[in-house]
Design a protein around this nucleic acid. Structure first.
Lengths: 144, 144
DNA sequence: CCCTGTCGTAACAGTATTTGTTACAACGCG
DNA sequence: CGCGTTGTAACAAATACTGTTACGACAGGG
């Protein structure tokens, strides 16, 4: 599967922001975040933009600009992040439409759509049980 | 997400084979299957090859060659198919390794690996509850 | 009122993946 | 032997993902 790393990177970003904000709540810049994630600041800004569109973070401009969490770290779940940065289709239908003259070709797509929707619901439920705070706590717990 | 259609196509193939085999158990050719799926026979053979490696179908050569189901349609689950045709990694880790000098960069990968493994287990469990026979029954039930 | 630092986004390159296609050797039954 | 099909290699086109450069928009400080 050509899986992407957006959920991973976005979770990394938010966990890092949660850690930094435990000190003080100044906005952090995409450039600082990029150093922890080890990538380009534009990649960070793209993901933060997606997270901001779902209300998970806020951007600040002008002097002392940057980003802050919009809510507390235990109110953000991996399900929220997933829906912000991924389009949520695990499995694709046929690239070219199946033969409508065949009973299977005609009937399989609605059935698989139901199956895939159920899978997505289960996935969301599982993702919703993990918060950024959980992730950060587990990261720091290992650090001894 | 760049999802692929391999699970969809492989399920289509097996449901179609199950339907045809209810009549008689002659091997079917990749060329006939390709007509229902509406794609190239080589695409079908590639997927059947992956399914054969996991023991879900058998290939036959020589005269009257083709493919047959290795077991009954209610003994093949979507989990079996998924593991045969997909590599089973829903979410990728960082493309370039995170900064090891940062607590988050150092600790996040093992934590996310655990989370993703748990997700995969839930996904497999859900997929294992649907058989090819279920799929075919639901396809035919709609056909009235 | 300008200067500065950062956001937000467009544009593009490089790589990888997916699907479809052609080609061809290997196989095994009649 | 002759034939049809498998099994796989090789390649092309389309798409997706990550990283990168570039630059206008913005807002607060001096």
């Amino acid at each position: 599967m050509s899986s992407n790393s957006r959920l991973t990177i976005a979770t990394h970003i938010l966990a890092w922001m949660a850690l930094v904000e435990t000190g003080r709540a100044d906005p952090v810049t995409s450039e600082r975040i990029a150093r922890s994630v080890n990538t380009n600041p534009v990649v960070i800004r793209r993901l933060l933009g997606a997270l901001a569109r779902k209300g998970l973070v806020k951007s600040h401009r002008g002097a002392n600009a940057g980003w802050t969490l919009a809510t507390s770290a235990d109110a953000i779940t991996l399900s929220d992040i997933y829906r912000a940065v991924d389009d949520g289709s695990l499995f694709a239908m046929h690239a070219s439409p199946p033969n409508q003259a065949c009973p299977v070709g005609r009937g399989i797509q609605p059935v698989l759509t139901q199956v895939y929707d159920a899978l997505d619901a289960v996935l969301q439920k599982q993702l919703a049980e993990v918060t950024i705070k959980d992730i950060l706590d587990r990261i720091l717990a290992k650090d001894r």
